[in-house]
Amino acid sequence: MQWLDTGWFGMLFVITMVAFILYNIHRAEKRGKDLFIRRIPGLNAIDDAIGRATEMGRPVLMVPGIGDLNAISVQAINIYAHVTKAAAQFGTPIRLCVANAAVYTVAQEVIRDVYQEQGVPEKFDTDSVRFLTDRQFAFAATVSGLIFRERVAAAFFLGEFFAESLIFAESANSIGAIQVAGSTEKSQTPFFIAACDYVLIGDEFYAASAYLTRQPLLVGSLVGQDWCKLLITASISIGFLWLSVDRTRMVNEHRAPLEAASPEVWAALTDDQKGDAESAEGWAKTDKPELIKKSDTFVHRLFNPMYNEKQLIVERQKKPAPAGEGQ
């Protein structure tokens, strides 16, 4: 980040949010497990979906999106670890289909560990975690084909989805699978809402691991996020009020000369205030450098570059030329 480009406000804001999250993680770990999280129907449905798959003897399908290995796919794998834990207890087959090789390796390790932790390492099928392809629509076709061939009983689509989201959701819907979905891509959430049984909207996706495990660390992080939301809400409220005050001052200052362009006011002005103007109307129309400009307002300075052209010119020494160059 260039301090001169964006000012100090954005950095201070992010550091404050980081502090909120870390403080609440610390607070929750001291306090224990009794923090409240509101009910999220999509996550309550996970056990029902696995139970149904177990009764029907069909697999549970999980897709962590088509994104790279990042916070989103790690969170999706965390949720799938919980799903796998329940599936391992009942001996329900799973299919975790991955479109990214890095995500595949992480997912395979995590799922293997879950089976070992549950004391049934022999039930782990190495083919249950599959790298299919990294091409978007080839992946859509492959997962869609798998849904139809294996007639999965439950499907979880949690992660970073794009145009293929509806292909997955409609394919699973057409065979009557229970679907729990959630995408960090807000443009895909409406498709999931239209086609799936349960949908995690927005940050519910990130709340899932805290909701399912109730680990103090994760729940504390969630409370920290709520504090951050309050901070954002407060800053938006203060911001629009401040902007309104700034703009009102600007408008009033610009209007004042026009309203004051009467013979009485003109007579009361000093020679300095009159400047080059020869009449009240002329004085009202003159540019007045002391008036507030938009770029002078506090809110504008918070979010816009504050440098001037002189600050961009920095004197520096030239690098010494390498030996033998220029000969």
Partner: peptide
């Protein structure tokens, strides 16, 4: 929704 997602990503990344 964007605010929620970005805050979640921030916390997860942290």
């Amino acid at each position: 929704v964007d605010f929620g997602i970005l805050l979640g990503a921030l916390a997860m990344g942290l």
